[in-house]
Design a protein around this nucleic acid. Structure first.
Lengths: 160, 160
DNA sequence: CACTAGTATGTTATATTATAACAATTATGT
DNA sequence: ACATAATTGTTATAATATAACATACTAGTG
């Protein structure tokens, strides 16, 4: 019953994914009146290199290898914190890793489908999921500030 | 619209929470033909000391202080892994911590409401949430193996 | 009972992820 | 150019987790 074919799961020109993400980031940062510095832009680009979540220390390694920038962890974590605050990336708690936000221009919760074979991770925006969570929280008189939904399984490409 | 009053959020005889959890654990382990050793039982008891998720190193500290057992991390992590496998506890990914499973006698996914003020964490079993997640996964032809739903917010007790 | 195979725990070392604290540098508005 | 704030650099360390191998315990078998 596959009714959706997200870009991440089909062959595509990924360069344009990256370009579009960096473009949107510029827009968002201008709107928010914050500075998308060279470092932050570079970290965002690295996060967007694939549709798989990327760890902070992986980013550090690329910065060292490709940019000759022997940065220490705080440098990367600060850039990641900035990108998180601006809604340009999400953190995947179950993987201690980060992934580009598919729609940074509007604030939202991200729900994720994570393939445990290939690592590709889809970001969903499901009203049904959102509503069911808010409803059950409401039943418990619980005031939601943040939702984390990470669904691990096997993507269609990796199913035998 | 508070329609539910979970034990964790109201004053209660917590000793009986613990006793009941340890009791159920015995049952589960007998059924699964696995050994609930002294250490594993003790770790489970510590996890059940409160309705707040407990870190592995907190457990280590209690073992050292109260039991004079100067265990190293692997000792605790192995006990935790065992308890996870038997479905006696859940791991809260966003907190790197562990909480007792409220209904270990049947296998299930746990959805959690986590209070960011007092730390108390409720485990939910919501068909609505479950169905919405499975439905959206199905739309993407995604085969679920594990769901993580951790909702952070403020519990009724902590609301101003 | 002694032996053995399997399970559980102990121990040492180290990997991985993340943050605190302070110094140096760079950008921005006046 | 100057003062201020924001950003990045740097050093050290905290917090979480696992690998690898040694020892001890348990349960079943002859």
């Amino acid at each position: 019953m596959n009714t959706k074919n997200p870009t991440a799961l089909i062959p595509h020109n990924h360069a344009s994914c990256i370009a579009s993400a960096l473009d949107k980031a510029q827009t968002v940062c201008q709107r928010n009146k914050v500075r998308l510095t060279e470092l932050r832009l570079r970290v965002l680009e690295l996060v967007w290199r694939s549709h798989k979540p990327l760890g902070a220390y992986d980013i550090l390694a690329v910065l060292a290898k490709e940019d000759g920038r022997n940065a220490a962890p705080p440098t990367v974590y600060r850039a990641l914190d900035f990108l998180l605050e601006q809604g340009l990336i999400h953190r995947i708690a179950s993987l201690n890793a980060f992934i580009g936000c598919s729609d940074p221009e509007c604030l939202h919760q991200g729900y994720f489908l994570i393939c445990n074979q290939c690592g590709i991770t889809l970001e969903l925006h499901s009203d049904k999921v959102s509503k069911s969570i808010h409803q059950v929280a409401c039943e418990y008189d619980f005031e939601i500030s943040h939702e984390m939904v990470e669904v691990v399984g096997v993507c269609p490409n990796c199913q035998v």
